[in-house]
């Protein structure tokens, strides 16, 4: 064990994801650089990562959201970009993680559609839409389980 001196203390890092036919990750990164004013922006294949003071990051995120409000998704990140404990440049090979992001980005189109539809709803329509239960999967019948179990 050795003393640990943290880097980027007091900063926040946010991921910006985009899944849009009109806006590319490069557009997002370019727009972020335009208003960066010294804040660290890292371009990625899905959008970008922004590291800076909470106010600066919030300002850039608000600017980016305007580009494609329903198709840009933002999330906090614990580690700053390039952290030796997570960065591929130091670890070598494929980086662990992003499985959750991959899984959730598959449903980004449904949520984008939902965001757009909900934005246009009146209070009554929202009440009605929210009252509709999401269908749950039927539990597997015990007889079918037994039948499967008895099969050779």
């Amino acid at each position: 064990m050795k003393p640990y001196i943290p880097e980027y203390v007091g900063t926040v890092t946010k991921y910006v994801f985009v899944d849009s036919p009109d806006t590319t990750p490069q557009d997002i990164a370019t727009a972020a650089y335009e208003v960066a004013q010294g804040v660290m922006v890292k371009e990625t294949c899905f959008g970008c990562q922004i590291t800076g003071s909470p106010e600066d990051v919030e300002r850039i995120v608000a600017h980016l959201r305007k580009l494609d409000p329903y198709r840009i998704f933002v999330k906090d990140r614990g580690f700053p970009p390039g952290d030796a404990r997570r960065c591929r440049a130091d670890l070598g090979g494929a980086r662990p993680g992003y499985l959750g992001h991959e899984f959730e980005m598959k449903m980004a189109r449904y949520i984008s559609y939902g965001l757009e539809a909900v934005d246009k709803m009146t209070a009554e329509e929202l009440e009605k839409a929210a009252g509709t239960p999401l269908p749950t999967e039927e539990p597997l019948d015990a007889d079918i389980v037994e039948q499967l179990f008895m099969e050779d």
């Binding site: 449903m107 984008s112 909900v118 709803m121 999401l134």
Partner: peptide, 21 residues
Amino acid sequence: ELRYPASREEGVTFVAQIKKF
């Protein structure tokens, strides 16, 4: 408590439930 959407219609319900909450 809800579950992930699996279609566009469920996407509307998912977002509407969260927004209302």
